[in-house]
Amino acid sequence: MIGSLWNVIWNSVFSGSFWYPLAFVCLSLGVLIPAVLVALSRNMVHAALWLLPCLVSVAGLYLMLGAELLAGIQILVYCGGIVVLILFAVMLTHGLGDPDVRVHNQQLLWGVVAAMAVAGVVLRLLSQEIWQSGPPVAVSEVTGRLADALLGPYVLAFEVVSVILLAALIGSIVIARGDAAPEPGADDSDAEAGE
């Protein structure tokens, strides 16, 4: 119901050959410019916050491609979970912006050269004739078909991922807790790690 209403609004207002490329250009710039700022920002909190518009724009690209469920998951998991986790980690360590501390290592030049080389090679490959694709196929009932696929032929991958998530949850708690509190009477040579 809401989906069909949305389709009507979308088709009547935003269809046509003008708005769609405009939205694509805006979302692409919204992905790439914050990504550059993530890579270059001196303040770690700013870098973590610049991750947000980048990930939201990626969710917008998913919406343009017709993967609504994936856009929702992207916003929930990345923007709501991972960015907050990264912000916590930044604040628990002393990664806050200090203008005197170098934020890039000695291989800044070679790192940029390597990244540009990778981009150049891939972009050169993308200009080949083989990538001249036709128009995208029309899709419908994406979420329902995705659910059928996840709990049908790919249920093993689904279950394995859930087990991995559980293992990662327990493992991250165990690792982040650090050394257990020293037993009374024991040698407290590692007491500096206590909470």
């Binding site: 890579a39 291989q107 800044l108 790192g111 990778v118 981009a119 891939v122």
Partner: peptide, 10 residues
């Protein structure tokens, strides 16, 4: 490429 640059240089 931007992500690779961040991994290699930060």
């Amino acid at each position: 490429a931007i992500g690779l640059m961040a991994v290699l240089t930060r």
